[in-house]
Computed example of a mutant assay.
Amino acid sequence: MKWSKTAFSIGAAATLVLAGCSSATPPAGGGDSGDDGYTIAFIQGVAGDEFYISMQCGVEEAAEAAGATVTTQGPAEFDPTLQKPVVDAIVGSKPDALLIAPTDVAAMQAPIQAAADAGIKVVLVDTTLDDPSMAVSQIASDNVGGGEAAFQAIQEAHPEGGKVLVVSNEPGISTTDARAEGFEGAVADDSKFESLGVQYSHNDPAEAARIVTAALQKDPDIVGIFAANLFAAEGSATGVQQAGKTDDVTIVGFDAGPAQVEALRNGIVQALVAQQPATIGADGVAQAIAALDGDATEEKIQTGFTVLTAENIDSEGADAVYRSSCD
């Protein structure tokens, strides 16, 4: 399988260069908003995930520059039943603004609406809601475009075409649903390829492996799998290996944390679609402070991504790898 030696980026470029960050940022003062002492709460989709850690770094750097204070919390799993109590507690503490990655488009609607009703400026980062009208801004990767780029990587590896499959985590998550939509739409535009649809592994690598094993038994001529998150990629790789198809099937994963990058280096996946989480966080702070200052905000902001391969991960693609800490 041949890959281009040049990383290609699609969408907006990063708007800030991040030099480093800490777990909480005290008011710095001196800026346009410094005297306001704004308090910003950032609620991650899941704590400990390198994507959200990288976003936290962007949040903290931007907040420090604006003289704001940041607190960061997140549920132990990407689960609305665990995220809701965190939101409820934050609403009780009455920060000036809330940056949040909703863990479900429907289940998190009421808790986040309650925050807005309490006068807290809400910015949705990464994921969104069925009705995001209470938010002053929504900031996310171009996930449809990311799905399209994942298909382009499979096209490059298999110009002759073939059957492809999407393995996602759960239906009802705005980001992964959009990635699958973008991938499926791109497949439909190329008559050489046939989509076998989307299957859900429920964030369980063992279930993803079972899905892929069964799919390869039924369709041994599958040439590509788009794994929409880390666990789907891990399980998909296991299924491909168990089927003895490592040299025949291209797996494209999403995100670029240490585990994903190790899988890329080891040849378990052949490409990664890396987002710009730090930029999402920094833009989220900028929009929150604009709303608090009474300035105009942008309803939607889309950030770009970079496709990483084994050939560019140690060169121009290195800056796209996610961070494990803000130190």
Rank of each mutant, 00 (worst) to 15 (best):
A63G: 12
D79N: 06
K84F: 07
I90S: 09
A76F: 08
K121V: 15
A118S: 11
I53R: 06
A101R: 08
P102Y: 05
G92R: 00
L98Q: 01
E60S: 12
A65V: 03
T103A: 03
E64N: 12
Y52Q: 11
A97F: 00
E60D: 15
Q113V: 14
P85F: 10
A89E: 14
K94F: 03
Y52V: 04
A116F: 06
A62E: 03
S54D: 12
P102E: 01
I120S: 00
P85N: 10
P102L: 03
F51M: 02
A62T: 02
P80C: 13
V91A: 00
P85K: 07
I100E: 00
G67T: 11
D96F: 03
L82I: 08
P80A: 10
V70W: 02
C57H: 05
V86I: 09
L98V: 02
A66Q: 11
Q56P: 05
L98R: 00
G92M: 08
Q113P: 09
L99E: 09
T81L: 12
G74K: 02
F78P: 04
I112V: 07
D117M: 04
Q73G: 15
C57N: 10
L98N: 01
Q56C: 04
A116T: 03
E77P: 15
A66W: 04
V122F: 09
A66C: 01
P80E: 06
I90E: 14
A65H: 13
V105H: 05
A68C: 08
S93K: 14
T69L: 12
A89C: 13
Q56V: 02
A68I: 04
L99T: 06
M55A: 15
P102T: 00
D96H: 06
D88I: 10
Q56Y: 05
Q109V: 09
G92C: 07
T81W: 01
A62W: 02
E60Q: 15
I100M: 03
A107M: 05
P111S: 02
M55T: 08
A107F: 01
T72E: 04
F78V: 08
K94Y: 04
P75L: 08
D88C: 14
S93C: 04
M55S: 07
A66D: 04
V70A: 07
Q83D: 13
A110F: 07
M55I: 13
T81G: 06
I112E: 09
I100K: 03
T81Y: 08
A63Q: 05
F51L: 04
A110N: 13
G74T: 15
V122G: 02
A66L: 11
L82Y: 09
T103N: 07
Q73K: 15
I53D: 11
A101F: 03
K121I: 10
T81F: 11
V105R: 05
F78N: 13
K84I: 15
Q113S: 08
Q73N: 14
D96L: 00
G74D: 09
